[in-house]
Design a protein around this nucleic acid. Structure first.
Lengths: 218, 218
DNA sequence: ATATATTTTTTGGTATGCCTAAATTAATAA
DNA sequence: TTATTAATTTAGGCATACCAAAAAATATAT
């Protein structure tokens, strides 16, 4: 398997899994990489054989420790280049992604570390995304499950990890859609259910529901 | 044909042809690119179909105008990166080539021009090789045919464009081998034959011979 | 629960870049 | 000139990355 192909899969899986907390399904990858679903099935099987992901039928994919290491390495390269292009070479934030998509595949540790050092070893890129360090340690992203939220804090709904219609319908009814702003006004000790302010409505969700909603501190 | 493959062929042909003055044979390319001769034959045929080179059996290859433009573009990217890596990022001259081999394939004019501008739009790279400008204009290299040499100047023999044994045997007899230093002591108006000092011997060569010897001003 | 829709996988099939070995062509030497 | 050697090309094959269409599995809706 070509190195660049491997890297594109791993990066995509990492990014689509909310930092490896969720399992990613084929279709999402296929859309992101602009590949036929059949191609993705093949690709994932190969990555599984390379022990870079765990992939079983009707399960989805999740990175192994090795896969995750590699993914973080690529993400580091990508984000360091983005930062360098923006801060040192005067590119606009809107331009840097496309160029970084190509530069990220050049695997030269000394080069990346040199760029990072010039930039003062930043921990965040111009988009606010965390940059993994040389060992792959990454600043915990501010994506959390709603079940891990804190009282009185404001969050933005970023996504869900349960894609069943039942669940999505439920969310829609509650207006808990992507982009919605919520404020945690009570967390019930007894059953960990949460009361939220959302669109000026007060709603109550079970812990089970909160476990499947990804939010970000506002 | 993959862009990277195309670029590697064109660059190699350019470099092996003394700035496009000579025709390049298959074997040389095959060695330089580390490919099987059969693969090179295929590759050259494809480049011919793409009108990037002129290639006919038992002739060799030579870049077309389009091919030459592309080759110069790649060479510009390569040499700008080499210079940037050395001068701005603190890499040793011995390290830069390898990294530039990868970076050169990223085709982003704005990026290269930005790097060039930071460097002060240099005309030579750290190795002394000329860097083509954005339009592909390149400082004339100091490789010339011996037939174009000037009286009383000293030159180093850099190569030949006629590889027949007959010719090579003749050169060897005259000690006109690669690396030899020659001084032009007479150019005969009548037939353009040249008298040289070479290894303390005075030798006379016809214009036809001089046409096939590549030299560089000492 | 069963029919319908969606997703995933399987099954051919294509194009590319490479190779080895054999055949051809060109160059060199006797 | 003819035999030998060297370079090039052809022929046949392999692996990879892709795709479209059919089949199978899974999820959804009535």
């Amino acid at each position: 398997m070509r190195q660049e192909t491997i890297e594109n899969y791993l990066k995509t899986i990492y990014n689509l899994s909310y930092n490896n907390t969720a399992v990613v399904n084929n279709q999402t990858i296929s859309k992101k990489l602009n590949l036929n679903p059949a191609t993705v099935t093949e690709g994932l099987r190969k990555l599984h054989n390379l022990k870079l992901i765990v992939y079983e039928k009707s399960y989805g994919s999740r990175l192994t420790t090795n896969g995750s290491k590699l993914a973080l390495d690529i993400i580091r390269r990508h984000r360091i280049w983005e930062t360098y292009l923006a801060k040192e070479l005067g590119f606009g934030w809107d331009e840097v992604h496309e160029i970084a998509e190509e530069l990220e595949h050049i695997n030269n540790t000394k080069l990346i570390n040199k760029l990072a050092s010039i930039l003062g070893n930043p921990i965040y890129d111009p988009h606010g995304e965390p940059i993994p360090d040389e060992k792959g340690k990454i600043q915990k992203s501010n994506f959390i499950k709603l079940s891990e939220s804190k009282l009185k804090c404001n969050y933005i709904v970023m996504g869900v990890t349960d894609h069943s219609t039942l669940f999505l319908k439920y969310l829609e009814k509650q207006k808990l859609i992507i982009g919605a702003e919520v404020k945690v006004i009570n967390i019930e000790d007894f059953d960990n259910s949460i009361t939220l302010n959302c669109n000026k409505n007060k709603i109550n969700i079970s812990n089970k529901v909160a476990e499947s909603i990804i939010v970000q501190l506002k």
